[in-house]
């Protein structure tokens, strides 16, 4: 008998990140992970930069290295990531504790799922994020 192979068809990272035709919650999930990891990376960087003062290096003092426009902008991106992560995180806490998914129902076509139940919460949280971004952007510009 000839050899029988099996093909492992797991999607891997592509299945996590891509695929294309997915819904809003899927993108919220991807962005939540990216922003979470981003803030974590920022924290690590933050520790490195601030600990440099032990060696007498103050990258942020006066018109120092960190006051170039690119870093000012990056700071805003970190703020934006945090605003999104926190707002969406509150939605996830509510949803994953079973508060915003509704009760089990008889499935009647066209199906309505828990996604429809929590969608208004998602919209509210995104509006809240936008408000934070606007306030933060305004505060950064007038500074």
């Amino acid at each position: 008998m000839s050899q029988i192979n099996r093909y492992d068809n797991r999607l891997g990272i592509w299945g996590w990140l891509g695929g294309g035709r997915w819904g809003a919650e899927r993108y919220a999930y991807i962005l939540h992970r990216i922003t979470g990891l981003g803030i974590l990376f920022y924290f690590l960087l933050h520790i490195v930069v601030t600990s440099l003062r032990a060696k007498g290096i103050y990258l942020w003092a006066g018109h120092g290295f960190l006051h170039q426009p690119i870093f000012e902008f990056a700071e805003y991106v970190v703020f934006a990531a945090f605003a999104y992560h926190a707002c969406n995180g509150i939605r996830l806490v509510l949803v994953e504790l079973g508060f915003a998914v509704g009760k089990p129902i008889e499935p009647v076509y066209p199906y309505k799922t828990s996604l429809n139940v929590q969608r208004p919460l998602l919209v509210c949280m995104m509006i809240l994020t936008a408000v934070f971004l606007a306030i933060g952007g305004y505060a950064a510009l007038i500074e």
């Binding site: 997915w22 819904g23 919650e25 899927r26 499935p107 199906y111 799922t113 828990s114 996604l115």
Partner: peptide, 14 residues
């Protein structure tokens, strides 16, 4: 809660 399972389910199981 990426929700894809509920979107994919052909029986509305959610």
């Amino acid at each position: 809660y990426a929700g894809e399972c509920s979107r994919a389910c052909p029986k509305g199981v959610d």
